[in-house]
Each structure stands twice: as C-alpha cells, then as structure tokens.
Design a protein around this nucleic acid. Structure first.
Lengths: 242, 242
DNA sequence: CGGACCATTGATAATTGTCAAAATTCGTGG
DNA sequence: CCACGAATTTTGACAATTATCAATGGTCCG
C-alpha cells in the first residue's frame, strides 16, 4: 500500500529531514508534521517574501537558494543571508506578529515548504526539543551576524572578502586535489551588496587576489582556493587569540 | 516573618522581575528560580567574560551596563551590544558548549545574577513559555543586528550616526519639553568602535550635526535632540517603503 | 590645582566610490 | 555548433570620503 503524504512533492520527505530543528523527532512525529506542510515554487528572480509583508507561516527552503536583503531609502540593497536547502525563515514573526524585516528573493528555481504560524507554535509547545533546537539555530545565526558585523565594521575590504570566501567555502565549497572549489551562489553585485562595498571594488580585489596566487578564477561563478589558510589570514579574524 | 531569598541582594527581587523572559512566571515559580541564582559585582572596566572563555551559566545584568565586543588580530575592537538592566548573555553557549564569542566588560559598576547552565536548561524544558520568550528575545536581537549590518554596510557615516542615536534614544533617552535627552552609555571611542569608524570621525560628525542644529551637546555624555524626526531622516532607514 | 584621560580640530594620505568605456560571459535562436 | 545581443564583469581615471598622525583644548576627579 502506498501512502500519499501531503508532502509527497518532497522526494524522500526531504523538506523535513533536511531541517536540523526537526532532527530529534521520530518518524511517527515527522509524518504528523508532514501533513501540516504546504508547498510552493518560485522561479529565479521571484520574490518569496517582501520586506514589511505580514507573514503567517514559517518557510523552509527545500531546493535552490535565496537571498534575504534589506533596501535603504536610496535604493541600496544589503544582503543579510543566503539561504539554501534546509534553511528557514519567518520564525521571528511567529510570536510578535511583526512584518518581515527583509525581502527574500530566489537566486535559482526554489521549492519551499510552509508551516503555518499556529501549527509551528503548537509544535514548539509540544516538543521542547524543537524549541531548544530553534534556540540553538538562532544562536548560530546571531553568532554569524556578529562575525559579519565585525567583518564589515572593521572596514578593511580585504578582511571582508576573506570573510565571505571562508563562509562560502564552508557552505558551497567542495575539496579536490587542487584545493577547495567554491561555487558562488551570488553574482559580483550580490557579493558587493553582501559586503557593503561597490561592485567594482569586489572585482578589483578578486583580481588582485588572483595575481597574488591566493585564488584562481575558474569561471564567473567558480573560484579555486589552493590554500585555505591564506584566506583565513586574509580574513584576519581573531580565532587565534593569544 | 522575614523570608531570606538567596537573591536577597537584588532589592525587591529585581534581577528576576526585570527579565522579560521570566515575565510569564507566577511568584511561586519565581521564588524557586531565585533560589538558584548567585550574584557577583564588577567595577567599571573589569571584564565579566572573555572572548573564547567557556561559560557555564547565563548572566543577567541587574544593575549598570556593559559592552560586548570582539577583537581583531590587529587589536581593533568591534562593539556588538551595550547591555543594561534586564539584558542577559551566555545563552548561546548553553546547548552547544562553545566558548563565548565576545568579551563583556563593565562600563559602570555592574551587578549580575548568574543562573547555571543546567538549571537554565531545565527551566526551558519545564516552562515552554520561557523558551518562547527566549526565542522572541533572540529574534529581536537578530533583527537589531540585521539593522546594524545594514547601517554599517551601507557605508555612509551619517546614516550610521543616525542609527546609533535612534537606538540610544530609545534605550537611554528621556523626553522633556526641549526634546529628547540621551545619556550616552559609551565614550566617543566606544561609539566609534560600535559604528566601525575612527574616533575622530565621530567627533567631526557630531560637531557638524551640532552646527546644523540637529543635536545639542549638553555635556560629553549627554546630547539633546530637539527633533527626533531629523535623526530618523539622518538614519535614512527604509521604514517608509512606498 | 594638577594630572590623567578624553575629545576636538587640522593637515595629509590612503582607500574606496563613482562614472565611463572596454572586455568578457552567457543564453538564445538560427 | 556557432553567432549575436544582452547582461555582467573588468579596468581606468578621477573625486569623495574617511583614516591617520599630530597637536591642541577640555573635563573630571583626587
């Protein structure tokens, strides 16, 4: 007998299994949750949530990636997060009811899973483990933003580029015998808007890094890093305190 | 009959009552929690927690204020938070066991309340309300950092100063008939390290704002803002999206 | 009153943003 | 599979902003 979950679109129930905050649940519980989930798809460039929009659900990225950004009065875009498989957003608005603080836009074709506000709240009350996982996840995000602020605030562009390469290497990098290949999820302009610098500055710095042999450009969206330690040096974050 | 709580040092049990995440508990529960709390005091300039230090408790600021900052390899300080009465930290390290990601240093004489890791964890499992409040608090912090990143990332120093003044006005401002008086919790250097600019730049920009009549310097630590709307304009954040 | 600390101001240098143009890449359709 | 056009990226020249260095001025507290 074939069981048709509401979540059938997620092959092998991916959308749930991919999400760390649900990882402590057994398959019985997972099945219950899957029934509560609805789905949607977006094309590249489409907006999933607008800044200021009132959200009534938590959204989990099931496939593809998306950027979350804020826009200033004069039209500048500051990217805050690059979400990919297993990441979620909309949780801030769960209890406060405040509108979204950023816009989320698909960088590629994106499939999402939605869990309504009420249902997610119930889950939190019923499964303290989920609440704890969520707290851990939020803590991790805070920590990431704190690093980003340090990186941006310390105003040396080389540092910032290093920071970005480290972060992307971890999330989108694969190792081979020549080093680490990073598949960049965003364009140069995206990188610029992420780092708070001008497009042209990103180009210039990357060229410079290539001349110095620290990176090798494979294509516009792929970079090879022979020696990750040189990037860490570039980022210059105080992971090695005396 | 006089009851001596372990928390007797907090006059009127302040340390608990001040903390939003405990606000849903009734006084019976509060009394139980108070018994678990230990206290400590720090002089101005003393360090409460070092970056990289392993913490085994959550710390609540009961009196005074403190700055939380990261240090880069070349000695630069990036301030992330200014904590004051009712704020807490150390929660990130609760479940992950990771060392502190920043240093916390007293800006004034500070009194703290400590709740051990295990005890706090137990509370979270026993009272889902506390977990939810904590999630809301973390969400609020994320949102604040996101704004900070936008403010720093958009690289116009005027905006950043506006952002800082708005934030401090809300937290440390009092209104009178002439406008809003902000009692600055940190020095010019502190402001510089918070905004990611040079000390001198802060001085120059504040002088400029005073010439333009947007602010009035009362003393080194006090600023009068006649028209808050002009500061909002200065900050230029897109709270007014079309 | 004196000294330490903090803040302001000025001059200059360095970095990065802006504008313009050229080069490259990418996707589409022939 | 190639060619073409649009979009993206790179490069160059210059301007604007801000950091740095140095000196002066101010404030707080014993």
């Amino acid at each position: 007998m074939i069981v048709h979950y509401n979540c059938e679109k997620c092959k092998e129930h991916l959308c749930i299994h991919k999400v760390p905050i649900f990882s402590s649940l057994d398959s019985e519980d997972l099945r219950k949750i899957m029934k509560l989930i609805t789905h949607d798809e977006y094309k590249k460039g489409e907006t999933i949530v607008f800044e200021q929009e009132v959200m009534d659900s938590v959204i989990i990225i099931n496939e593809g990636s998306a950027k979350a950004y804020k826009t200033t009065a004069d039209g500048r875009e500051q990217i805050l997060y690059v979400f990919s498989e297993g990441d979620f957003f909309g949780e801030q608005n769960l209890f406060t009811g405040q509108p979204s603080t950023y816009t989320v836009e698909a960088l590629q074709p994106v499939k999402i899973c939605k869990l309504s506000r009420n249902q997610f709240q119930e889950l939190l009350y019923r499964y303290p483990d989920i609440a704890v996982k969520l707290i851990v996840e939020l803590g991790g995000r805070l920590s990431r933003l704190e690093n980003a602020i340090q990186s941006i605030g310390v105003r040396n562009v080389d540092n910032r580029i290093g920071f970005l390469l480290l972060e992307f290497a971890e999330k989108y990098g694969t190792k081979n015998k020549n080093g680490t290949v990073i598949h960049l999820p965003i364009s140069r302009e995206g990188m610029a808007n992420y780092l708070g610098v001008a497009r042209e500055t990103v180009s210039r710095k990357l060229s410079q890094l290539e001349n110095e042999g620290i990176i090798r450009s494979i294509s516009n969206k792929e970079i090879l890093i022979p020696e990750m330690s040189r990037i860490e040096e570039l980022a210059g974050i105080s992971s090695h305190l005396h």
